[in-house]
Amino acid sequence: MMRKDIVPGDGAIAPDMPRPDALLLAGDRPALPLGPDGLDRYTRRDLRREEMVIAQRFHGGAMWPYAVAAFGCFAVWVAFFPLAVMGMLNLPLACVLSCIFATGGYVTSHEAMHSNIARPGERLRWLNEAVGAVSTIPIVFPFSMARLMHLEHHYHCNDPSKDPDYTDEAPNAIMAIYKTWYNRQPGGDGSIHHYKRILTEMGTPEARRALAETMVLQLVFMGVLFGMAWRGYAIEVALIWWLPRHIGLSYIRFFLSWAPHHPRQGKIGRYENTHVFKSRLGHVLSMGMQYHVIHHLYPGIPNHRTKPAYAAMRDILKARGVDVSPL
């Protein structure tokens, strides 16, 4: 049956077609039904195909730098502890480097969460898992929990009840920074407290394992802090682990969660759950989060390729209703 909202090309009037004067009365009514984004389904399909062709070009590539960075930084950070005890460490410099390792570790771990270093069944899968495991130790956030929660974030992005990161939402940047600290308070319901509750509700073997590993890592962290502190190295362990962990967690929460997703409320669509923004700290210090839209559309594109992928996809994103004006 011919659809009433399609004007036949040859001018013939089908039996169930409205009369030409009725079409005129319809005024500016489009020939094809349009979605909320102002596009008809054929345009949407074509744009999606173009988008996927472009995305294909940016998947993969050399991922070994992530592994080198993860293991290199972890080794240097671990070496800080005996060097501090031996009095052979420049503590202010070690503190700055530890902050960088704690924060940057999430980036390398993030690639492992999406199996971008090696997928299940591939020869280097062990490397993917090892990179993930060592990267988030400085922030006392086990890879098993990080991966489960991050994938939940992708599945339910900006859903107030299902997105584990929704508790990072805040009305402005100052409040967002404050919330990164507030959510970590022992009685708070954000950050790792929220994650623990979600994992308990999930109740799967993976969730139970993540909870157990979280407990073990937190106890190891406390054990190292207390042990070193009572042996006279409280300042050292504070500057190598305790303070960098807090700075790293706040930085990660702000730049990887709040900044690319604000405002979260009601923004659950594929092209609206992140926003493009220009960072005052630049591309590297904001860890590529200005182009987070690319990551949510195609998590298989590694972090360092999201910027060129965005440049190649910008016109399509604009057509899909993404505000690309900042960049």
């Binding site: 502190a229 006279g232 409280a234 504070a238």
Partner: peptide
Amino acid sequence: LVFGIGFIAPLIAQI
């Protein structure tokens, strides 16, 4: 509380 005893107290003493 354990953190107060295990970490904050020796940290203050060392500072």
